[in-house]
């Protein structure tokens, strides 16, 4: 597995016009901004103790969610894990159902049974997130298998952190996908830490993730996960490679960084588990800042629009939160509803 290497601030040459590049980057930026605003609001209001469930914020990791999901159609399927807010939102998951779930409300996407770690919105193609690390990978493969057997053209994507690749189920799933020739997309967000434990304590120095993945028969790509344009481009390459080699799954690994604590509303760099140099390095490579700098270079006139968009997103999330807070809690009489499907 690659180290958390620097994100290059220069961009590769492209054949597109600068206007096309700008339009796309603007859309990607707006989506990242929307997710950032929503999660920042969750962090700010968490102390009110009304959202009474663990939250794993994806602040800092928005580019992977947005850059990958920008390629996906509504019918394409996504699954994720404990840090799934960004994936859910980028896939078009209903924001009110998500917030209602965090607030334990009846209107939550799980009716208040799951909390932040159990997001789902199948209408948006988000087929579920669960907190057991690695667990949705084989389920996503099963969805992909069912689609393949039906002759469908939907793509199934599993998002997970690099810690999940240390679980046996990753290897089992990757191998099954290769053996059964089920094309699915594995998106690995490598933020370098499993809670407080660095990758250096979890993989031998000479471990080479790409070779490991390829040796199973899978495609593999890796790139910088804080550069949304690179995420978008690399995902495009991955999908193109999958189309050219039907039946092959593909793993794409993106290096990234979470700015907040593993679980909770705060930042925890004062604990000293991440090196100051790394912290500084990644602080300079905020995915929103990277995109913003590039956008303003392409079109300085976007500056006020950025400010306006941020204000709009804040208004929207605040309205959702107020709406959700005034919505009913689940009826206690429903406690045992649905232990078995009828």
């Amino acid at each position: 597995m690659m180290a958390n290497s620097p994100v290059p601030l220069s961009q590769p040459p492209r054949a597109e016009t600068s206007s096309q590049i700008c339009d796309r980057l603007w859309r990607l930026y707006l989506e990242m901004l929307r997710i950032r605003v929503i999660e920042r609001r969750i962090a700010e209001r968490y102390g009110e103790k009304e959202m009474r469930c663990p939250v794993h914020l994806s602040i800092g990791q928005e580019a992977v969610a947005v850059g990958v999901c920008a390629h996906l159609r509504k019918q394409d399927k996504v699954m994720s894990a404990h840090r799934s807010h960004g994936h859910y939102l980028a896939k078009g998951g209903n924001i009110r159902a998500m917030l209602a779930e965090l607030y334990g409300r009846e209107a939550g996407c799980c009716g208040g049974r799951g909390g932040s770690m159990h997001l789902i919105d199948r209408e948006a193609g988000f087929w579920g997130a669960v907190p057991i690390v690695g667990s949705t990978m084989p389920i996503a493969l099963g969805l992909a298998l069912a689609d393949k057997r039906r002759g469908g053209d939907e793509l199934t994507t599993a998002f997970f952190g690099e810690g999940a690749t240390e679980e046996g189920v990753f290897t089992e799933t990757l191998n099954l996908a290769c053996v059964l020739r089920v094309p699915m997309l594995f998106i690995c967000e490598n933020n370098g830490f499993s809670v407080y434990t660095p990758l250096s304590l979890r993989r031998a120095p000479d471990f080479e993730f790409g070779s490991y993945v390829r040796s199973h028969g899978s495609l593999y790509f890796s790139g910088h996960g804080n550069d949304v344009e690179e995420v978008f481009a690399l995902t495009g390459q991955a999908l193109s490679a999958m189309r050219q080699d039907p039946g092959r799954p593909c793993v794409v690994e993106f290096s990234t960084w979470r700015y907040y604590e593993h679980c909770g509303p705060g930042q925890d760099d004062h604990l000293g588990y991440r090196e100051a140099e790394q912290i500084k390095h990644w602080a300079e490579r905020c995915p929103l800042a990277v995109a913003r700098t590039r956008l303003l270079a392409l079109s300085p006139a976007l500056d006020p629009e950025m400010t306006a968009a941020e204000k709009r997103y804040i208004r929207e999330i605040d309205a959702v939160i107020e709406n959700v807070r005034s919505s009913p809690m689940p009826d206690a009489a429903t406690l045992q509803r649905g232990v078995f499907a009828p």
Binding site: P138, A146, G168, V169, T173
Partner: peptide, 19 residues
């Protein structure tokens, strides 16, 4: 199939969700 009992179980869960 390969032995992979855990992933196979996830696979059948997903396949069931897929109809």
């Amino acid at each position: 199939v390969p032995l992979s009992e855990n992933a196979l179980t996830g696979l059948v869960i997903g396949a069931a969700l897929g109809g």
